[in-house]
Amino acid sequence: MVSPAFRTQSLAKRYGRVLALEGLVLSVPAGEVFGFLGPNGARQSTTIRLVLGLTRPTDGRAWIFGTDAANVAVTHRRLAHLPADVALWPQLLSFAGCRRGVTVHDPCGMPVVCVIRRVGA
């Protein structure tokens, strides 16, 4: 039997006193198209971060193709994630251009060379 693409068991996340997610049980079969929709604040981003192993659950577990989501070294080889914040992409393209010696600017107008030096890349 094929493992689900991802599944959760009693997944929960607290940030201090704030309960962000409680007791999520979800299974998405491999090969299925799954839309994760809801209004702002419906906990989609929290759930995705937990399933991707980008943050640790307070309780419960998540698996990607049968591998514990906390094992990001293995699970991240089998998935891709495109966040909703696509403002990231112009900087990535600018960074590639900068490496070729082309002068480019980030969306705020700051020369990318300065941004790279500031973060130590």
Rank of each mutant, 00 (worst) to 15 (best):
G120T: 05
R100G: 13
K13Q: 14
V33P: 02
G60S: 10
H76C: 07
P39S: 09
A20W: 07
Q44V: 00
T75N: 04
L92N: 05
A30M: 12
T55A: 11
L88S: 11
V113L: 12
A84G: 14
A80M: 04
N40P: 01
G35K: 00
L52I: 02
A20Y: 06
R43E: 02
G60A: 10
G31P: 06
G35W: 05
L26H: 07
A80N: 09
V51K: 00
A73T: 11
P57R: 06
S3M: 10
I48V: 14
L54Q: 13
R56L: 12
G120L: 07
A121Y: 11
A62Y: 04
T67K: 08
A96Q: 08
S10K: 13
L19A: 06
G53W: 03
G66T: 06
C98S: 13
V2H: 14
G23D: 12
V86D: 13
Q9M: 09
T8E: 10
W63F: 15
V119F: 14
T67M: 07
G38D: 01
G101D: 11
R100D: 15
G23W: 01
L88G: 07
I116K: 14
A30P: 04
W63I: 05
A70H: 07
L50Q: 00
W89Y: 15
L88M: 13
P111Q: 11
